[in-house]
Design a protein around this nucleic acid. Sequence first.
DNA 1: CCAATTTGACCTGT
DNA 2: ACAGGTCAAATTGG
Length: 311
Amino acid sequence: MESPLPENSSADLKRAIEELIRGREFTRQLKEIIKKPLGGEVAKDLVDKIMDSFSETLSVINSDDVRVVGTPFSSPEDNYSSGSCKSSSTLKDRRGCYKRRKTSESNIKESSDLVDDGHAWRKYGQKQILHATYPRHYFRCTHKYDQKCQASKQVQKIQDNPPLFRTTYYGHHTCKAFPRVSSQIILDSTMDGDSSSVLLSFDQNVNQNYHPNCYNNVPTFPSIKQETKEEVFNFQSSSSDYFLPAANDGHLTPATFEGSGSHMTATVLSPDVMSSGVYSSSTTTATSNDNLEIGIDFEECLWNFEGYSEH
DNA sequence: CCAATTTGACCTGT
DNA sequence: ACAGGTCAAATTGG
């Protein structure tokens, strides 16, 4: 895979940062405005998350740890060992034959809740770690095979009271699954090492085109039934969680911005989707007249990133 | 039936 | 040798 980020001047980077700062400032001003009573909590929470997204993006850009801008990524293949796969001919025997991550280009986040980061994740493993109270959960991007997206993450509960989770992100999302309501809510008790743990992951991806037998090969790009190329993104919330599809996992994903248009609309639904401790999510595109809509013009902020992928 | 999760097997790096 | 990371069969759920 070639780099989504060609060489660019530090001037471009500077401008991108400036625009992000500007966007964050606008959001802050918006936050002030909606601080007034009258349904403020819902919107305020959303704005907080938007601001977090900006801040996170900025910190990523400024981070040495994560090469986001200015340094083209090497091929994901380069970051993995080749994997010997000795002695295996049958499919069954290929178990455990994989490419292990060599370098640790990671981005660690810790938070008290497990709010969705806007990407579709698929759990592929769980492991009890030595001297760790809670097991570590392994996730990879749902589009690992259908779009060759190499992003993955590990989630581990590191503290119970108050609950604290550490999420370590590896790789970068190259999938174009950006504008979608994908929420992942992990009930508090599910990360406590209980084997009955359940990770609830809601994703409206319909066509995952997962190839169980497609082993480290390069699947043809699937026919994508889902129409997520709309220019207006709708995000749905439960009563307490509002999800941003922004690349707030600490990595910018310029490719996903392609053709994303100039407006991002966050749709906050009335709190009606949570019941009896079980979270549910209905379809994303649903919009209600009761919804509180916050339209934010991200055009200028994103322009730079789109520019990056064009020359 | 299909997709997601669980979980033991198995591989790699140290 | 061992701990951590990944795979994939079995299981679960919609």
